[in-house]
Amino acid sequence: MKARMLADEVEIIYEDDDFIVLNKPAGILTIPDRFASAIPNLYDILKREYGKIFVVHRLDKETSGVICFAKNEEAHADLSEKFEEHDVNKIYYALIMGHLRNKEGRIDLPLSENPKVPGTMRVDYESGKRSITEYKVLEEFENYSLVEVRPLTGRMHQIRVHFKAIGHPLAIDSVYGNKSEIFLSEIKKKYKPKEASRKDH
């Protein structure tokens, strides 16, 4: 099928009687925020368009990528089972701070919600749920690394918290890291933006 736009910058890349697959842009929530339900999110946008919709998996607000929703209970149960049984491969690409000593590995740290900061997660060895993230370094820059990431569990903010825990937070992460923006010149040493686009980052 031909891709079409559902809302501002939300592109439908596949749709049939059971599923709808979106190209989620960064900056939009997957589901309503628990503390601010008025913030735009994919679930509400789809609900207005289709009436009934089922959440299969989630992507963080600032994460872009392919996300799937189900249109009926049968499709939801089927796809949810595939995610739980790891029949569906989830691959992310992340730019992290610094260089990892092991260029390929696994982060196995239990996570739980942080009671001191609602809506965030933390490493919790006492009551946290087991959380596993596999990674492979694809390319290294002066102060950053591009990594391929495969979360084997689906905890909230798992990738962000895991890389923060091992001392390599995501390059842009105002919650778990220390930067809310970066410039290409920080990654590519010889990169010189045009005068008209110096504010682009």
Rank of each mutant, 00 (worst) to 15 (best):
L29P: 04
A38D: 15
Y125P: 12
K52G: 05
Y92C: 08
L79C: 05
G177Y: 03
M156Y: 01
T133D: 03
L100S: 11
F183T: 13
F54P: 00
D44I: 05
P25C: 07
I159S: 04
L170D: 11
P32S: 02
P110T: 07
K129F: 09
N89W: 03
A75Q: 08
Y176L: 11
G154D: 13
E49S: 07
I53T: 10
F83A: 10
G128R: 07
I107Y: 00
P118D: 02
N89Y: 12
D200H: 09
Y135A: 01
D60P: 14
V161K: 00
S80P: 08
T63V: 14
I187Y: 12
G98K: 04
T30V: 04
A36P: 07
F69A: 06
V175C: 05
F69I: 02
E104D: 05
Y191K: 08
P32G: 04
G154N: 12
I45R: 10
R122T: 04
E84G: 07
F35L: 12
A7G: 00
I96M: 06
D124F: 03
E11G: 01
P110A: 06
F141V: 06
I28T: 02
M5N: 12
F69C: 08
P32N: 04
E142N: 13
C68G: 01
S127T: 14
R155T: 01
E126A: 11
Y176Q: 14
R160A: 01
R160I: 11
D200Y: 09
F19R: 03
R150N: 11
G119T: 13
N41Y: 02
I53V: 15
V175K: 13
D17V: 06
K164H: 11
K61Q: 12
Y125W: 15
I20K: 12
S197A: 11
A77G: 09
L109F: 07
L46Y: 12
I13E: 00
S127I: 13
I31V: 15
E140N: 08
S80H: 13
I187N: 13
R198P: 06
E74M: 13
N102F: 06
V88N: 09
G167K: 10
A3S: 14
R101N: 12
E139W: 08
G128L: 09
D200F: 14
E9M: 10
L111Q: 08
I107H: 02
H86G: 07
P110D: 07
R4C: 10
E142C: 04
K192E: 14
R122V: 04
G98Y: 00
L95H: 00
N102G: 02
I28Y: 03
S131R: 09
M5W: 15
R34C: 03
V56P: 00
K47C: 06
K194Q: 10
H86A: 10
H201C: 13
I187P: 15
I172Q: 11
M1K: 14
K52I: 08
A70Q: 09
L100E: 05
S131A: 15
I166S: 09
K2P: 11
F183H: 15
P193R: 05
S37C: 08
K47A: 05
L22V: 11
V56K: 03
I182G: 06
E139V: 03
E140D: 07
A7K: 01
F54K: 06
E81A: 14
I91G: 01
N102P: 02
H157N: 13
E134F: 03
E140V: 00
Q158T: 05
K24L: 04
G128D: 05
F83D: 11
D108H: 09
R101P: 05
V56Q: 01
K189P: 12
